[in-house]
Structures are given as structure tokens and as C-alpha cells.
Design a protein around this nucleic acid. Sequence first.
DNA 1: GCGACAG
DNA 2: ATCTTGTCGC
Length: 262
Amino acid sequence: MIPRVRIHAPYISVTSKFVIKVECFIIQDMRVHTLHEWEVSIARAREIQLSLAKRVVTESEVTNPCLVVGIDISSPDAQGVARGAVVVLRYPEFSIVEVKVAEGKITFPYIPGLLSFRESPLILAACEKLCNVPDLILIDGQGIAHPRRFGLASHVGLFLDLPTIGCAKSILCGRHQPLGEEAGSHAELLDKGELIGAALRTKSGVRPVYVSVGHKIDLTSALQWVIKCCRGYRLPEPTRLAHLAAGGMLTSEPSCQGKLFN
DNA sequence: GCGACAG
DNA sequence: ATCTTGTCGC
């Protein structure tokens, strides 16, 4: 039986200089039928974004306060409550500067391509609590490696007006050639002839992660930053710690490996 | 028409 | 994302 979902909701109604506003949309048969407003907003946002995409966040820009941030969200519990977490790290030591968490009920379903509407609210809520302004943000999801070239990382970057990198654990769209087994190997991620991101082997012997431009950064630097943020795990440190924080497995202590099992 | 599909 | 123990391998 095909699920029939009908949704009317002001899930995101963010008004900034970019004016992203989604009041209502209807989803049926797991397909989006009415997303006119969103598409119009995205088209405009994408236009603005493209003009900023060439910007490169250089290492010298991340020296004081030198903050690299990871963002992730936990899966909702039985009551539909989830936690959005943002972890601020000092680069290049990766010492924890700040951890902020926001809890809230998740109401929007998971629909491939519409993850932003499910996760953005909590992510932004967590970001609102930050005392530091990050220089660079890594997000657990796609940037422009998205059917409409505007995934979660792009949304968040646009809302916050900060550089973001999409770093996802699997592909939403696009394909790539096989890549080397050594850490650091990467291959272009192409969709319909467009370069939308890269598959990156962050550690030898594990599946690659998928890096794409979120906002205010180009692919080459995004790739370099992700590589520089890797510390022997498949996921780059900011993302990894944000994931732990969202799961309640990270408090204020930089290392709590002793308490972790599994 | 059918398969694929971030978390 | 989640269901799920021990196990094989670097």
C-alpha cells in the first residue's frame, strides 16, 4: 500500500535578507505535488548562493576565534522528540569550545529531498544558543548534491549566512567513479552532467563520505576542510562529535571514550 | 512504468 | 535512521 501523506504546515518561515518562506505544501503518494513557493525561494536562494560559492574559507580566516562547527540531529524518540546539537571546535586542535543542544518535537516526515524541512528547525534552534560565531560549519547531510541543488547544508548556511559544507554518509543523487582505497582519495560526484560534489575516502577501508558545497565555499576548499577535519574516523571530527552530542553521549568533556561502549 | 532515494 | 552478536581482519 502506498502511503498517502498530506501536509499543510508552516514548518519553516524564516525571513532574512534572503526571504525564504515556506508556508504550506502538500505531499501525496510520497511525491511532492505542490512546492511552488519552495521552488521559487530555492531558485532565488540558489542564485544568491552561486554568486557566493566562489568564496574560499582560508585557513588564516579560521584562526581567531578559529571555530569549526559540526551539526547533527538525533532520531526522534517514541514521542517524536529529537535533539539538535551543535559542537564548536577550535581548529586545528579540535578542542571543544562550546556544545549547544535544542530539543523539540519532530513532525515532518523523512522524505528524500526534503530533509531540510525535517531537520532545519532544530538545527537552527541549537545554533541560536551559540555564544560563538563559527567560521565554518560541517553538516550531516548534502549541500548542493541534491536534486534541486539545495540540500540541508545549503539551507542552514543560507539562514545563518555562514560558510557550510555538506558531508553526508550516503548519496542522495549523482554518481561517481570508483576511488582509491587510501584515505584522501576522492572522485567527482556528477549528476546529469553537473559537478555537484565529491566522494571522499576519509579513512582507508571504509565507505566514502559525500562532500558538497553548502554555502559560501567552493568544492575544492570544502574537500580540503573535510580532509583536514578527519582524525582517524570515517566521519570528520566536527560531525562525529555533533552526532555524539545529539545522542547525549557528549557533555562538555572533550574525551569521554571511556564511557562509551559499542 | 520502474527504480532510486541525505537522515 | 533502525532492526542486531559475535566475529573476522588490519
